[in-house]
Amino acid sequence: MTSAAEGEAGRPVKLGIRLSPPCLLLVYRPARSGAALRLRKMPVKSLTATSNCARVAQELRERHRPHLDAVPQNKLLKMLRVLQEGLSGGRVEDILPRVELEFRVDPDEDLNQLSTELLDRKKAAMDEHFNRQVVRPDQPEFVYDVRQDFDGPKQHSGWDDDGDDW
């Protein structure tokens, strides 16, 4: 069995892009021990200004299986968004900060109002944390029914305002 951080193809080391023509670059260490780092170039031909990046990511994952299996979804989506913005010109240094914002979760933002695609980017950012923490059924430390009581003295959350009428 391979862990989440190491796919069948090996361990991803770096993910990068080339803007023109759009191409995703993956530096990985092959699963065979002692092997040197390899570079895989993955042209992203189907990407247009209006593409759904999640769909393009899925195509890439399938075409290049198993190389992208261990690459977190939000990292992949972020690279595709930079490529997408780059289709209309511009430098990576200028595009990246804009794209970073799309994947940042502002705790005060009302995510209910986002389009499905924008919401998926926020969820992908949250999933990165989730996937680091998650204990899955195939892991030896997995327990199905984890019960923990938090009965100690409670302080008020500070999340209620005077005007709140529950």
């Binding site: 923490q133 998650v134 409670k154 302080q155």
Partner: peptide
């Protein structure tokens, strides 16, 4: 270690949960 008015005022049990 925090309490919330919403559950207290509505007499609702609060579960502290981690899906991960």
């Amino acid at each position: 270690s925090r309490s919330f008015n919403f559950t207290e005022k509505n007499g609702m049990p609060l579960y502290y949960v981690s899906a991960s």
